[in-house]
Amino acid sequence: MKFTVGVAMTPLDQLAGIAKAAEECGFSSIALPDSLFYMEEQTVDYPYTPDGSRMWTPDTPWVDPLIAAAAMGAATSTIEFYTQVLKLGSRNPVLLARQVGSVANLTNNRFGLGVGIGWAPEEFEWCGVPYARRGKRVDEMIDVLKLILGGGMVEHHGEFYDFDRLQMSPAPSKPVPFYVGGHTDVALRRAARVGDGWTSAMIKFDDLVPVIDRLRSLRDEYGRSDTAFEIQTVCIDKFGSSGYSELADAGVTDIIVVPWIFDGHGFDSPLEAKQESLRKFADKFIHGKDTA
């Protein structure tokens, strides 16, 4: 079982200090969120809260997750980073391949790309990308990214993207893992078909178990049941040693946690308080010094 630290809505000047403390404590990874901008009025509901509202305000701090990974990677040497998740649909895959390859190289292959489509029409349209047919376009984007990141001279002639032979150097010396987000069946199919893992938004255990079962079935269907596959989750109702054991038994491989929240600290709490929470959590649940 791996434990990853989620850093959504963390002040930017704390990111390097959190990464260093998490590495020292034995956490596996840092999960990096993505938010392009805050539109004053949203035209569709946010899909991961009961009432469709956003959990942040116009002043909530965000940073581009690829830039954050590079900065945090420079402050550490072993801990890994992955986006959780990058809103792929509003981006250009050729430009993104350059950015992902750069981060993978600068962190010595400590970077994984967690991808989702994106939920807000404004994020697509205001970035010059149509909201319509976003799922099909994202499928092709993943193909383009994997093709370019694989190295060498490549070309692609698809429905949405078309380019002649090009090469981006240096290519990552190891394949960048792709983790696919989303709770719909089409998202689960995408994860099972092309992903190295599936990554969740906030989810309850009773909803998580059938998702994992469905992923197993789909991976069998696509002939991928023998390949390594991560299950990364933010489970909102299983905590402590018994809760984490239940998650592991269900098939979760990576639990995303925010230890300072467990200690009653907010997102804007001082860095030192968050570092102490990381140490306390690691002592209890990573190093097994306390079975409470």
Results as ranks from 00 to 15, higher is better:
G116N: 06
V94N: 13
P177G: 08
S277D: 02
D196N: 15
V194S: 08
R165K: 11
G151W: 03
P58E: 01
D290R: 11
I255Q: 00
E246Q: 08
W260Q: 00
T83P: 12
I236V: 11
T4R: 01
P11G: 02
D220W: 08
G26T: 13
G181M: 06
H265D: 04
P58C: 03
A21D: 00
G240M: 06
A132Y: 04
M72C: 07
V44Q: 08
A68M: 03
D162V: 12
G158V: 12
T60F: 01
G118N: 04
G151S: 03
F111C: 02
N108P: 10
R219T: 15
S225I: 14
T227F: 15
L113I: 11
N105E: 04
D263V: 04
I256A: 01
D45G: 07
D226A: 14
Y48G: 00
G101A: 04
A292M: 10
E140S: 08
W126A: 00
E159C: 09
F124G: 00
R110W: 12
G89W: 01
L95Y: 15
T184Q: 09
R134C: 04
I30F: 05
T4F: 05
F3N: 05
C127P: 06
S90T: 08
A71C: 04
G152H: 09
W56M: 03
G251A: 09
V129L: 07
G181T: 14
I79D: 03
P11M: 02
K280D: 04
A192Y: 13
I203A: 04
A292I: 07
V94Q: 14
P172E: 05
V211C: 10
Y161R: 11
E230D: 15
F124N: 00
R165G: 05
A19S: 01
V94T: 13
G223A: 11
C235S: 06
L271P: 05
S28R: 15
A71N: 03
G195N: 12
F285S: 06
A171F: 10
T199Y: 07
V176R: 02
D213I: 14
P50K: 08
V85Q: 10
M39H: 05
P177W: 10
V252L: 03
T49W: 07
F163D: 10
G150R: 07
G112T: 11
Y131E: 01
C25E: 06
A192M: 15
R110V: 14
I142S: 09
D162S: 11
D254I: 11
A68W: 07
I256Q: 05
F262R: 09
M9K: 06
D13T: 06
A191P: 15
E246C: 09
K87F: 09
G73R: 10
E80P: 05
Q99S: 13
F37Q: 02
F111Y: 13
G112R: 13
V100G: 02
L149S: 03
M39A: 04
Q14A: 00
K20M: 06
D249S: 09
V63K: 02
G266T: 13
T83W: 11
G288E: 06
A74L: 10
D206H: 11
L188T: 12
G288D: 07
E221Q: 10
A191K: 14
E125W: 01
N108E: 08
V44S: 01
Q232V: 15
T57D: 04
P58I: 02
T233N: 06
R193Y: 14
F3S: 06
R214F: 14
V144S: 10
G89E: 05
E41H: 08
L36W: 06
P61C: 01
E122G: 03
G240Q: 05
P270N: 00
G223M: 15
